[in-house]
């Protein structure tokens, strides 16, 4: 039954009952209504209105549920759907809404995927050029400087040594930038080595990164390795920047179903209700991309843990 007819028939039922009561109840209304008569009529009207209100509420309740879902929907946590209960148009509305969510989520996932892979490809290219072009040229300059310095008279040699040092520093800087853009280890030696190296990079006097990377991991596709690496990188960045923790544990292990699971847990101050920023949203996007499940949580005792479960 359509919403129109449903509401119409509810109203009709209430009015019909009222009319029948008027026709067959042993009551009359004087030309100028007496107090008792007026009270009865008012009470009758009130009953009619209440009955009408209750029926409408029942009739429209699926719409209220739909509204609640619509206001809380988050495309970064896909999968929230309403059961198409209710009749006629309401069920249709819910089904149409669910279909729209499906389309939005697919479209969003694929455009986010395109954006992310374009970004990664660009980073890769820039890192490579820094490495292969500027890096190599500066290396050659460094070697030439050494030779020239050796053949120069003393005062010039000291100056050349300084030039050598600043060339070395910019070469180191270029290498650091290239590595942050795209870690060469990941491409050449694989995820386990890249995560070991990452743990080393984040270890400082105040923060110890303990890593446990199981060596018998299943072979993972390149894009899955990249997502695992980037999530570990952002989690460690957050731990170093926000947590004031002393220890971070980085664990990569195989799950029973053949998937893998990454866990980065610190013993710091916890999220304390901080809103999610670009970093955590970025991790969610990447997780979505490979159909993995991401959770970022703080325990009651403090500390934050990021878990990424990649299905087999």
């Amino acid at each position: 039954m359509s919403l129109f007819w449903r509401i119409f028939s509810l109203n009709a039922a209430v009015l019909t009952v009222a009319a029948l009561v008027l026709l067959f109840a042993p009551v009359t209304v004087s030309a100028t209504a007496r107090l008792a008569e007026a009270l009865i009529i008012l009470a009758g009207t009130a009953v009619t209105l209440v009955a009408n209100a209750v029926m409408l509420r029942v009739g429209l309740s699926p719409l209220a549920r739909l509204t609640r879902v619509m206001t809380t929907i988050d495309l970064l946590r896909p999968g929230t759907r309403l059961v198409a209960r209710g009749q006629g148009e309401i069920a249709q509305l819910i089904t149409a809404f669910n279909a729209m969510l499906d389309r939005l989520e697919t479209e969003r996932a694929s455009s986010a995927g395109r954006a992310l892979s374009a970004q990664e490809a660009e980073r890769h290219r820039i890192a490579q050029e820094l490495h292969d072009e500027i890096g190599q040229t500066l290396t050659a300059v460094l070697l030439d400087l050494k030779r020239v310095a050796k053949a120069s008279p003393d005062p010039v040699r000291d100056q050349l040594l300084q030039v050598q040092e600043s060339t070395r520093n910019s070469l180191d800087e270029i290498r650091r930038i290239a590595r942050r853009l795209r870690p060469g280890v990941l491409d050449e030696l694989g995820l386990a080595s890249a995560l070991r190296a990452l743990a080393g990079e984040f270890t400082t006097a105040g923060l110890a990164v303990r890593r446990q990377v199981h060596s018998d991991l299943p072979v993972l596709p390149k894009e899955v390795e990249l997502v695992l690496y980037r999530v570990a990188q952002e989690s460690l960045t957050n731990a170093a920047r926000h947590s004031a923790a002393q220890h971070v544990d980085l664990v990569l292990s195989e799950q029973n179903d053949g998937g893998v699971r990454l866990c980065v847990r610190d013993d710091g101050r916890g999220l304390r209700g901080a809103p999610e920023g670009a970093g955590i949203r970025g991790m969610r996007e990447r997780a979505l991309l490979i159909g993995a499940d991401l959770s970022v949580e703080s325990g009651v005792t403090g500390g934050t843990s990021v878990q990424l479960s990649v299905p087999a």
Partner: peptide, 11 residues
């Protein structure tokens, strides 16, 4: 090499 990464060294 340009790579300063101990993982490359171990490899």
């Amino acid at each position: 090499t340009m790579y300063d990464n101990e993982q490359f060294f171990f490899e």
